[in-house]
């Protein structure tokens, strides 16, 4: 009180409390953060550097610049086709998942049904089995019976089936937070149920639809097992499966091709995230609320 400019006595207690100790602690904290960041950034750096490197290794290093890898990839018969194939599977599944889950979630949110929540949880639980390894044999047999082996439709249907429960779960939450008075108001003005859906419900839950769409595309884009098993001809294989074939004759992974292809493979998903996030804004607040 009497000398407000003097350092407070408490500051001089112990070695860690002085200005030097504070500095050391600060440096330590930053070092820790830098290490953690480096740990996560290194693979990204490798992904950014290796495709342009003449002799890529498993370490991230400044590349000896070349575009050779891209040239080789362009001439690989399956590489470019596989990206198109991935796109077909991803977009097809996304359309089905968004459309079907929107209808189901709307109905489940609006209709009083006994055991509704139990049903949803059971579906959610089972869905991880449907697309998991456990059910692969019956799914393959089923697809064979239905003539859906080696067809995009078969893969799309299986993937859609696996993703629907989670999509319904997410969208139902969005639907639940949409006041019923919006729909009732439109109904009083004479709008038909489909009209209410189109004019009111869909625009209001659009962020939810966008979320589910993006999530579906990302899931399908990264799925390896199902297209690997169900698509027999190499020219139909999506990117995730084709990447698996980039080995040298000696059985060594062809790092140049793999890294280049990985970069091309991840770009569309990143771009889509950026676009959708700018357009609609993701609305995840502690869970799956709008």
């Amino acid at each position: 009180m009497s000398a407000p400019t003097a350092p407070r006595p408490a500051d001089d207690h112990g070695p860690g409390r002085g200005p030097v100790g504070q500095l050391l602690r600060g440096v330590g904290a930053y070092l820790l953060v830098a290490l953690a960041l480096g740990f996560f950034a290194l693979p990204m750096l490798w992904l950014a550097a290796a495709p342009f490197d003449r002799h890529p290794g498993v370490t991230a290093s400044l590349p000896e610049f070349t575009l050779d890898s891209f040239r080789r990839l362009w001439h690989n018969p399956n590489a470019v086709d596989s990206l198109a194939s991935s796109l077909v599977l991803a977009v097809g599944s996304a359309v089905l998942v968004v459309g079907l889950s929107a209808l189901a979630a709307y109905a489940l949110s609006r209709v009083r049904l006994r055991g509704r929540d139990g049903l949803l949880y059971a579906l959610l639980l089972l869905s991880s089995i449907v697309t998991g390894t456990a059910a692969m044999v019956p799914i393959f047999l089923l697809a064979a019976e239905l003539n859906l082996v080696d067809s995009y439709l078969g893969v799309i249907l299986v993937l859609t089936g696996g993703l629907l429960p989670a999509a319904i779960f997410i969208l139902k939450d969005f639907m639940d937070t949409t006041p019923r008075s919006y729909e009732e108001s439109a109904r009083v003005f004479g709008a038909s149920p489909l009209r209410v859906m189109k004019d009111v419900v869909v625009p209001v839950v659009r962020p939810g639809l966008a979320t589910v769409g993006v999530w579906t595309v990302a899931q399908v884009w990264g799925n390896f097992l199902i297209p690997f098993l169900l698509l027999r001809s190499p020219d139909k294989s999506p990117a995730a499966v084709v990447m698996y074939t980039f080995y040298t004759e000696g059985g060594q992974p062809d790092l140049a091709l793999i890294s280049t292809f990985s970069l091309l493979y991840s770009l569309p998903v990143v771009l889509m995230f950026l676009f959708v996030s700018r357009r609609y804004g993701f609305r995840f607040h502690g869970g799956i609320k709008a």
Binding site: P179, S181, Y182, S185, A186, R187, A191
Partner: peptide, 20 residues
């Protein structure tokens, strides 16, 4: 008759203005 054919208009407690 359904609400739309009754020649009525309703204002809801929360006004139900469409946010979009």
């Amino acid at each position: 008759l359904p609400p739309g054919d009754r020649g009525i208009a309703m204002v809801f407690q929360d006004y139900a203005l469409f946010p979009h």
